[in-house]
Write a protein that binds this DNA or RNA. Structure first.
Lengths: 111, 111
DNA sequence: GAGCAATATAGCCCGACAGGAATATAGAGG
DNA sequence: CCTCTATATTCCTGTCGGGCTATATTGCTC
């Protein structure tokens, strides 16, 4: 089964997730909004389903797809050890700006 | 140029980022740790470079690769609107557990 | 149960991409 | 300048994935 990252690598699938953020939608609705044929959308939905990123509710012939944010929470956890790094960079930048009242002679390494 | 998500979809590239989290490393070091040939590692590094996820420092023939966390911060931002969703789920679960002191007759919809 | 609506599945094509082997490039040192 | 080291680039191959068309499935309604 594909990793959450692999599933998210596809722009159309991210679009689908974006659309589902506001609530559940039937397939036809997604087909209308994405410029894709119905089979293609269904295929993407299958991938999303197998990755646990969406859930389906049956209502007669209509299938309502709904977002499942849990795998995204795992991405969030994966980011955790990196988060301190860019925080460190921002802190350093802040300190730098802070320690530089107005120094026009200052040069960075952009030569 | 590939999106950050596409770049991260490759497991080996995530491994490389993991290795670089502790500090900069030369290519040969990465080759030793990943079970890949040197050209393959160089190719991955090129992709990572073009996506802005790593940076190079030249030191004679040796190239020291270093992590650039900024694109990861963008992923973090992308997650932002979703974060409230899984927080909502967790909140709901908490409220649920909270409102259920000890109710053995309680049934969920898992039939 | 025939017909219609909504969705899924199958089959196919094509472009992208990861992997490796071979080769090129860059720099140090004798 | 030749050689050795470290890395990048090129070329080739196999596989995978997205897109489409055509077809199957499911469930409603008359």
């Amino acid at each position: 089964m594909a990793s959450t990252f692999e599933v998210l690598a596809e722009p159309r699938r991210r679009e689908i997730l974006d659309l589902l953020r506001t609530g559940e939608r039937p397939v036809g609705d997604l087909v209308d909004r994405l410029a894709l044929t119905q089979p293609t959308v269904s295929k993407h939905l299958k991938v999303l389903r197998e990755a646990g990123l969406v859930d389906v509710r049956h209502d007669a012939q209509r299938r309502w797809y709904r977002l499942r944010p849990e795998p995204l929470a795992e991405i969030d956890e994966w980011l955790e050890p990196y988060r301190r790094l860019w925080n460190a960079s921002l802190d350093a930048l802040e300190r730098h700006l802070d320690a530089m009242p107005d120094d026009p002679g200052e040069r960075t390494t952009d030569d």
